[in-house]
């Protein structure tokens, strides 16, 4: 794992997610797409660290729902990232439709858990939050697999090796 490249990628994606995408009615969650990417293409230990790190970055900008308190996304991304890394040892997710489905399900589960934890911390839930979460999950699922290629190129990861662990 190239950690310096990882740090640059996360900072870049966090800035893009926070500045360019919020003006769209429904935007994909780029950080969540990266979460799934690292869980699929990294060793489980690395996947656990990257999941929590990406969750922390999502907390910093409140992605994809703005101004969430700190903590919920770190926990939900970390938990589902770790689960995904473990599941990936048994089920290989290498085809694009499966990757899209994985992103969709992870986005939904991580989003629901993050909202629940934020609610426990006294955060006000926006009235149409569940519709927004569904929109983000669908959009991320559609866009995500296409972003795996540039991410793999930047991280120097070979996408087509058989790497079931």
């Amino acid at each position: 794992m190239r950690w310096f490249r990882f740090a640059i990628l996360i900072v870049f994606v966090t800035v893009v997610q926070a500045s360019v995408l919020p003006n769209l009615e429904v935007s994909p969650d780029l950080l969540l797409i990266l979460l799934v990417f690292f869980c699929i293409y990294c060793e489980p230990n690395e996947a656990i660290i990257t999941s929590f790190a990406i969750g922390f970055a999502a907390d910093l900008i409140g992605s994809p729902m703005p101004l969430m308190p700190m903590g919920p996304q770190t926990i939900s991304f970390g938990l589902f990232g770790t689960l995904l890394a473990y599941i990936h040892r048994v089920i290989n997710v290498r085809k694009m439709p499966y990757q899209a489905l994985t992103i969709f399900i992870t986005a939904l589960l991580a989003g629901v858990l993050a909202q629940f934890l934020a609610m426990l911390k006294g955060h006000v839930i926006v009235s149409n939050i569940w519709g927004m979460l569904l929109g983000v999950a669908i959009y991320s699922g559609l866009v995500g697999p296409f972003l795996f290629l540039p991410s793999a190129w930047w991280m120097r990861v070979r996408m087509h090796r058989f790497a079931r662990r």
């Binding site: 929590f52 969750g55 308190p69 700190m70 903590g71 926990i75 938990l79 911390k121």
Partner: peptide, 19 residues
Amino acid sequence: MLGGLILLIAPAKWTSSFQ
């Protein structure tokens, strides 16, 4: 996970400093 939980339960006044 412990780190995440500390972030979650810490007062928002402190944790929002990160944001």
